[in-house]
């Protein structure tokens, strides 16, 4: 259970998610998108969140921001419960938390000029002085490596995917937030642009003193930027731990599968065809007990009868598995 976890600093965590449940009704049935997730992120830390498509990563991110109200559970940001907040209080709080999406082009309004897109959060926040707005927009565009003079008057379609992602990052930074949720910010980008954007996020993080929740489906990408990694499967956390430790000694069979799936740029490393069978089952009727059991090579009777809880296996490393690898 998460209460056993001690954050890296002695301070209270900036974000604390406690037993969060998010469900979507579909007709008479229910999609169990997030089912009891608890995690903590210390100020200044980057927590990576990794898992396959549909496992609930975006839902979790949106529920943290209260863009989707959770079915139950708490989201404490800087000690205050966002799930209990409404209206203006919530809006004020949200300024401190921003979101960056996977598809940079789709998340920019195609009819608005870049200068207006980046200034929009300032307008909403009530920065009335146009000169002040322009100054802040120019600063933040320059910070993400764009020349304000060249970009403010142009439209999103005039930019490549990588440039659009820079613009999205600028828009997220303009209100000087403390916390950014990056939802697969590089999944739609090719290798070279991906490296540029990952470096940019790292640079912005130290420059603006940010705390990040970094969502991706590729463990190699997640490891490049994260202090700790949380692995998610079908709405539940499988494993949480310091990045290097998790790679060196994964405790959960699913973490091991994700590591094995990373393409290695070395022809002598033959891709193995072992455990990567099947796809995740439907979140409408998740398997009993351990949700990973239908794909797990170690599954036994106990795994279908009893749901494994997160418990400590090594310092700072927690796993939810009856038969962990370590």
């Amino acid at each position: 259970m998460m209460q056993q976890y001690q954050p890296a600093t002695s301070h209270a965590p900036l974000l604390e998610v406690d037993n969060l449940v998010v469900e979507y009704p579909v007709g008479a049935r229910t999609v169990h998108a997030v089912s009891g997730v608890s995690l903590q992120i210390a100020r200044g830390e980057t927590l990576g969140l990794v898992g396959e498509s549909g496992c609930g990563k975006s839902t979790l991110g949106r529920a943290v921001l209260q863009l989707r109200r959770p079915t139950s559970g708490k989201v404490l940001f800087d000690g205050q419960d966002l799930t209990a907040m409404q209206g203006d209080t919530l809006r004020l709080m949200r300024r401190r938390v921003q979101l960056i999406f996977q598809d940079p082009i789709a998340s920019l309004n195609p009819r608005r000029r870049i200068g207006d897109i980046v200034a929009e959060p300032l307008m909403i926040a009530g920065v009335k002085d146009p000169a002040k707005r322009k100054q802040l927009v120019d600063e933040v565009l320059a910070a993400v490596g764009l020349d304000p003079a060249l970009v403010v008057g142009r439209l999103p379609h005039e930019f490549s995917g990588g440039q659009c992602q820079r613009i999205c990052i600028a828009r997220a930074l303009v209100l000087n937030p403390e916390f950014i949720i990056c939802d697969e910010p590089v999944s739609a980008l090719d290798v070279s642009i991906r490296a540029q954007i990952l470096n940019l996020l790292e640079e912005m993080k130290s420059r603006f003193g940010l705390t990040l929740l970094f969502i991706a489906h590729d463990l190699a990408v997640v490891k490049a930027v994260s202090d700790r990694v949380a692995v998610m499967y079908l709405g539940r956390l499988c494993e949480v731990g310091p990045s290097e430790q998790l790679f060196a000694k994964p405790a959960h069979p699913y973490t091991a599968l994700l590591i094995e799936a990373i393409p290695v740029p070395d022809p002598d490393v033959r891709p193995t065809e072992t455990v990567r069978v099947g796809e995740p089952p439907s979140p409408i009727a998740p398997p009993s007990g351990c949700r990973f059991r239908t794909r797990c090579p170690r599954a036994d009777a106990r795994c279908s009868a009893e749901m494994p809880e997160l418990r400590v296996v090594a310092p700072g490393q927690l796993v939810a598995c009856h038969h962990p690898l370590i």
Partner: peptide
């Protein structure tokens, strides 16, 4: 070489800057 170097490596420590190819 630059395309290869830009890949995040699983054996690199977190927060190692990636040798990105600048520009387009």
């Amino acid at each position: 070489e630059a395309l290869l170097a830009a890949l995040p490596r699983i054996d690199a420590a977190p927060h190692t800057p990636l040798p990105a190819i600048s520009g387009r």
